[in-house]
Write a protein that binds this DNA or RNA. Structure first.
Lengths: 215, 215
DNA sequence: CGAATGTTTGATAGCACTCAAGAAGAGTGG
DNA sequence: CCACTCTTCTTGAGTGCTATCAAACATTCG
């Protein structure tokens, strides 16, 4: 664990890449049983957990560069699931390959620790949104989050970001009902905060959105 | 990263222990600025985040054996705060000492990765509770969680577990108002699910509690 | 025994949920 | 290119869970 204040270089992962595969929207990123770690090359997905009775809580958006499957490999399966929201391109790794240090540069474990820390921080912010924000603030936050995630990986084009999230996904992300989510989105849209169409979102003013999200 | 399906041995941390200190209930576990990692030896605390406007979201209960400060050391401060809920005894470590592998046994980084994975899993379950459970289920879940955490570190005594959580803490854990939390606790108590008194909780039937928590 | 903190209760308002059903897109096959 | 189907989005009505306000009561602690 060297200095981790800066984002470590993830390029070395390319050397490990074992196989690339494409999956369609709606498919699961990880097979049910096989321990596997994949990196997202293209496309957007979500991670979610299920309650016994079927209620679904979305807990993370997955963008290119993200690693999936760490928790199930390290801690056993059954915790959370991944579903592609767009067609995706994935690189698969053998978990066994991930714990060999590299001769130069940060070792792989260090990188993994950094990634997990970032994931913990994100999850922490997500929890605060679900627990403390009302529907207006929550949805403003969700849109802003999606925007910033897209921006970080260069997916902003012509003033708009990808937004492949059905309203049911947004609802399950924030713990709201579908109907209330719909009405709230419409209200914020009529208010001019953002506009969703064709799987993309266009925002008028990031500061205004941050304000609406109580951030 | 060897086989992490089993809990790694944390005993080696004892060798690192740099200083022990006691803090009173209500105190912060970590100093504002100094990067520091502490392990809880005795006592119970909470971890929480704050929204800009002061709303508080509790995101974890901290029991003996837990490590605090990893995220701030690795990712920068400001994310979450710790507050002691009982008098506590802490061991402090120099973060720099934590990245030296041990000659035998699992290296420290491996252990940290395992701990972080467990924390991610817990946070994921916490999020599902806040997002998907109603007040009844949420509070039943909270009590059950506190019970299981206490049980895991041998804090159950005479059929009761420590419960140093003010109702405001429970409310901020679940994203409920204080008043509604109070009325819900009373309802569940009158229903015979559990009984809180003197900083401890006594439950009548764990299965019944699990059922009430929709788990 | 005050002062501070935490718990309890009642009344009222409102945000969010449920139910129900229609409109709009997206994908499929004839 | 047009039916057909499925998913997603939208809207209205009615209910209820949860928040807010206000105040009394209990506990802890110095």
């Amino acid at each position: 664990m060297e200095n981790l204040s800066r984002k470590p270089d993830l390029a070395y992962l390319a050397e490990l890449s074992q196989s690339q595969r494409a999956i369609p929207a709606g498919a699961a990123l990880l097979p049910e049983s096989t321990p596997l770690i994949v990196r997202v090359e293209r496309g957007i997905a979500m991670r979610y957990t299920l309650l016994e009775d079927g209620r679904r809580q979305v807990e993370a958006l997955v963008y290119p560069g993200d690693l999936c499957g760490l928790t199930s490999v390290l801690y056993g399966p059954g915790a959370s699931y991944y579903e592609a929201l767009t067609p995706m391109m994935l690189s698969s790794f053998d978990p066994a390959d991930l714990h060999q240090p590299l001769p130069d540069g940060p070792d792989r474990t260090t990188t993994l620790v950094w990634l997990m820390t970032r994931e913990l921080t994100r999850l922490s912010g997500w929890l605060a949104s679900v627990g403390q924000r009302n529907a207006n603030e929550g949805i403003a936050w969700f849109v802003m989050h999606a925007w910033e995630r897209a921006e970080a990986v260069g997916l902003i084009e012509k003033d708009s970001a990808p937004f492949p999230f059905a309203q049911q996904v947004v609802a399950d992300s924030l713990g709201l009902s579908l109907v209330h989510t719909n009405k709230t989105i419409r209200r914020l849209r009529d208010q001019g905060l953002f506009r969703i169409a064709g799987g993309r979102v266009r925002i008028s003013s990031l500061p205004a959105l941050r304000r609406a999200a109580a951030l």
